[in-house]
Design a protein around this nucleic acid. Structure first.
Lengths: 138, 138
DNA sequence: AGCGCAATGTAGCCAAAGCTATATTCAAGT
DNA sequence: ACTTGAATATAGCTTTGGCTACATTGCGCT
């Protein structure tokens, strides 16, 4: 009746996802800003995420450290190839999760808001199932 | 085209949910252990969550601070009334999310694992929609 | 009764992610 | 060309949640 190792693994995965979530949010947002305005400024990132700009800058420093973004002092922020790839994946996942929530009857407001948190925990298997469900249900 | 304040709110909500997630996991697990073995020991909590025991103890201290649990030195851990209520809510939510994932075709393994992370981001509106969907679909 | 080991607790370290306050740089407008 | 205000960067503090290493307690067994 233990069930301990499996459970520990699950919690571990959830923890990992949580710590990846922030990076993913930043990368996705930076990609959005680059697409929309041709540039991504730290202060806009901060405003959109609802944090102060020093916080945003610190997190962007982490992105740089992890090879997802580049930025030179007083210039804007840009994504590396890896960053762009991550952004694409994240965006596709986000859209899929929102669509699924809508399909099962979640109101649009809640779907958008909850997807923001849930998306980071959707595994490949789950995303595939979501896609299948949507294809079938439509 | 701004859309900034709404977006900031959403991210803020996701952050709040993330920080509540840990507490919820602990409370739920402690409730499980109490139900299953009549006692909840720090080391079991640690094992199940896949962390070391000092980490578990520190988090349990936070539970105590927030009025969710009580523990006397070298005795087990117990939940307060508030802790029990939270555990019930969390458990119900967890089951609902798993059921929904299964209903849309997510494999059991992935459903359990992903629910562990997703559940913390499901709002009341979303949970209600899930319940409606399950009632209708069955 | 007492010994030893497992469980519990403590101390101290680290990184992440938030903040406020302060400096610096750039660019825009007169 | 200068000044000034906004954007950017830096410093330093806090909390959280990890960890390792070490100290203590108490229970079970001989």
């Amino acid at each position: 009746m233990p069930e301990e190792p499996t459970q520990a693994l699950r919690f571990g995965k959830a923890r990992t996802a949580r710590s990846a979530a922030l990076l993913e949010d930043y990368v996705e947002l930076i990609a959005d800003l680059l697409a929309a305005h041709g540039e991504a400024r730290a202060i806009d990132v901060a405003k959109r995420l609802g944090v102060t700009h020093p916080t945003a800058i610190k997190s962007i420093a982490r992105l740089k450290r992890e090879g997802l973004a580049t930025a030179r002092p007083y210039r804007g922020i840009f994504l590396t190839e890896a960053g762009r790839k991550l952004a694409d994946r994240v965006r596709a996942r986000h859209r899929l999760v929102v669509k699924l929530l809508l399909a099962v009857g979640v109101p649009a407001e809640a779907a958008e808001a909850d997807a923001e948190g849930m998306e980071h925990h959707a595994s490949e298997a789950t995303l595939k199932a979501f896609a299948r469900f949507l294809a079938r249900a439509k």
